[in-house]
């Protein structure tokens, strides 16, 4: 009796769990499917679940003059912003984790508070500064802004990872004659590789998906994928197939990264408050 009831209960849970999951995931699944239908199939009514797949939409996306440029822009912004953010963040996180002073806590919270600044509040001056320094619609300009906005997160995330490294191992390095530079490069960084990798990954994801600054600071020249996709929004551009193919290409790598590194992302996104 009890066993049967337990089994019944777990069946209900499984059913609810799966229905909710499929319902939430459905738009992404449908986008993926539509990307292989071609334009005619994409808008067929009733919508088709089974069809002969075609790469027609992908071909068209690849042939759009700016697709590759947009992809390279996205990569440039994401990688550039991430690398520079790490260059600033690693020493800062090291100092706060291993050489804390009276003001460390205050500094960390202040960094967090810079994240509270709503981007839209400073849209005007940033736009004007970018325009006056000729950084408007450049990969460099967007990467800089992305780096600034993500730096509090990268510092925090590295800080929480560094805090988990046993201090005696670094001290052993010092006893072995390592100076500060060697201590960081030969002992700390190899130990912290997983943490640094997930920090870099989170930064990449945030840059890749960033839309506000992408839409406002770039146009034809430096537009990343987030802005490129937006160009499909014009009413006359109702090309579901191409939209789906471009979207699938833009989303797939980040989905894969996100699935792989969920746990670390939680830490980063919550400033280490949830592990």
């Amino acid at each position: 009796m009890a066993g049967q009831r337990a089994r019944g209960k777990s069946l209900v849970i499984a059913a609810v769990g799966w229905v909710v999951a499929i319902w939430i995931f459905f738009p992404i699944f449908w986008m993926f499917l539509t990307s292989f239908k071609g334009e005619a199939g994409a808008i067929a009514t009733p919508p088709r679940l089974f069809f002969v797949p075609t790469l027609e939409s992908y071909h068209e996306v690849f042939q759009r003059a700016n697709y590759w440029r947009v992809t390279f822009n996205t990569l440039g912004v994401s990688i550039g912003a991430t690398v520079v953010a790490l260059l600033f963040s690693i020493p800062a996180a090291y100092a706060m984790a291993f050489l804390p002073g009276k003001r460390t806590r205050g500094t960390l919270l202040w960094m967090l508070s810079t994240r509270m600044l709503p981007p839209v509040g400073v849209l005007v001056p940033i736009y004007l500064i970018a325009r006056n320094t000729h950084l408007l619609d450049t990969v460099t300009g967007l990467a800089l802004v992305d780096m600034f906005t993500n730096m509090p997160i990268t510092v925090w995330m590295l800080y929480t990872f560094f805090r988990e490294i046993p201090v005696p191992i670094l001290e052993a390095g010092r006893m072995d004659g390592a100076n500060r530079w060697q201590e960081i490069t030969r002992v700390l960084l190899p130990l912290a590789t997983p943490g640094i990798a997930s920090t870099a990954l989170l930064s990449m994801i945030l840059c890749w998906n960033e839309a506000f600054w992408s839409l406002n600071l770039t146009s034809s020249n430096a537009a990343p994928l987030a802005a490129f996709i937006a160009s499909f929004s014009s009413p006359e551009g109702l090309f579901f197939g191409k939209l789906s193919a471009a979207s699938t290409l833009a989303v797939a790598p980040i989905l894969a990264f996100g699935w792989i590194s969920q746990k670390q992302l939680v830490r980063g996104l919550t400033f280490g408050a949830v592990k």
Binding site: I24, N209, A226, S247, A250, V251, W259
Partner: peptide, 10 residues
């Protein structure tokens, strides 16, 4: 959790 990783414009 997937939709969280989809960029806003998409």
């Amino acid at each position: 959790i997937s939709p969280f990783f989809v960029m806003p414009t998409v």
